[in-house]
Computed example of a mutant assay.
Amino acid sequence: GHFYLISSILAVFPHQANAKNKDGITALSILSQIYIKNIQMSLSNDSNESFSLLRLKCNRKRSGTHQLRCFWGRACTMINASYYKSIVEPFPNKRVWRVVHASVAMVGCPIDVALLAIKIHPEQLCQQDEDGNFPLHLIASNDEWNDAFDPSYVRSENVGDITTSTLLDKILDLYPSAANISNKNGESPLALALRSGKTWEKGIKRLFDATSPSKVNTRDPSDGLYPFMQAAVGKNSCITSIYSLLRHRPELQIYA
């Protein structure tokens, strides 16, 4: 019943998946709160059985797994509507379904949901989308991920806070090679993160450490700026990032 209702609404109004209520919370966040214990139990479980069932869209009703399937079906519908502007394939512009890419790129996706997507489809971390972006590029460029997760999101007891940098670290740890691959526009994850306003402690340091010197020391072809210049642009400019990037290449101070 609920799944049909959600699908019916988003089939006509896919933009509603990005809508936030007066507290700034999306429908996906509210849905996630309902199933938070199932999600976090699955994330803490090393067994791959439940994730295999989700990948295969198995209909077997099992304690916990069935509830997780109910959540995941609804969550994917919302993620598809938000990112692809459609709830079913074929998606516009012949885009291929990649839930990890979509979850880290969409507006207001709970971090637990993105982590669940990664655990279900870890192979997608190594896949580029139609624009040449890995999930690392998309989380780097999405300014929705610039702060720690919304504190209004209810977390179960005995579970520590998961921040944006935790998710970026997870993606980087699982596929570090993406840090040195540019998308079709010639943009690296570091350049995208700097442009989106991320700070040194919330992503830039990890990306900087993972990026080869050749990429750190060159201009971004999309805007012609060196990394330290990108760190200085915009309302979220970070003095720590500017200083650290300049210290790595002091001869560039002539451009400062």
Rank of each mutant, 00 (worst) to 15 (best):
K215L: 15
G132S: 11
S196K: 04
V233R: 15
T199N: 02
I139R: 11
I204W: 02
R206K: 14
P227S: 03
Q230Y: 00
P227L: 02
Y153E: 07
P135V: 09
D131E: 15
A231R: 04
L207E: 08
N183T: 06
V154I: 15
V233A: 11
S165P: 00
T166V: 09
V154N: 07
K205R: 14
D143S: 14
D161M: 11
R219P: 01
K202H: 08
R195W: 02
S177Q: 08
A178T: 06
F208N: 05
L190P: 07
E123I: 05
R195H: 10
Y175M: 01
D131H: 15
L190N: 05
G186R: 08
F208G: 03
E187V: 07
H137T: 13
A232C: 10
E144K: 05
L172R: 03
P176H: 13
Q124F: 03
E201I: 05
D147H: 15
K184V: 07
N158E: 13
L116R: 12
P135W: 08
I139C: 12
D161H: 07
D209K: 14
C126R: 14
D143H: 14
F228V: 05
H137D: 12
P221E: 10
S212Q: 08
D173S: 11
N217Y: 02
K119P: 02
Q128Y: 01
D169Y: 03
W200A: 00
I118N: 05
S165L: 06
F208D: 04
D173W: 00
S214R: 13
Q124E: 15
G224N: 11
L136F: 04
A178R: 03
A231L: 01
L174I: 03
H137V: 13
G160H: 01
G186Q: 07
A232S: 15
A231F: 01
N142M: 13
L136Q: 03
T211A: 09
T218W: 01
E144N: 09
D147Q: 14
A191T: 00
P135G: 12
P227N: 04
Q128G: 01
C126L: 12
A191P: 00
W200G: 04
Q127V: 15
E123S: 14
F228T: 06
K184G: 11
D169Q: 12
V113A: 12
G224V: 13
A178M: 07
S152C: 06
G203I: 05
K205V: 00
I162Q: 02
K215W: 07
A179G: 05
G197L: 00
F134M: 12
R206C: 06
H137W: 11
S212D: 12
D223Y: 04
I171H: 04
L174M: 15
S141R: 15
T218Q: 13
S222A: 11
S165N: 15
T218V: 06
Q127D: 13
L125A: 04
R219T: 03
L192F: 07
A148I: 02
D147E: 15
A117H: 05
P227D: 01
N133P: 04
S182Y: 00
N146S: 06
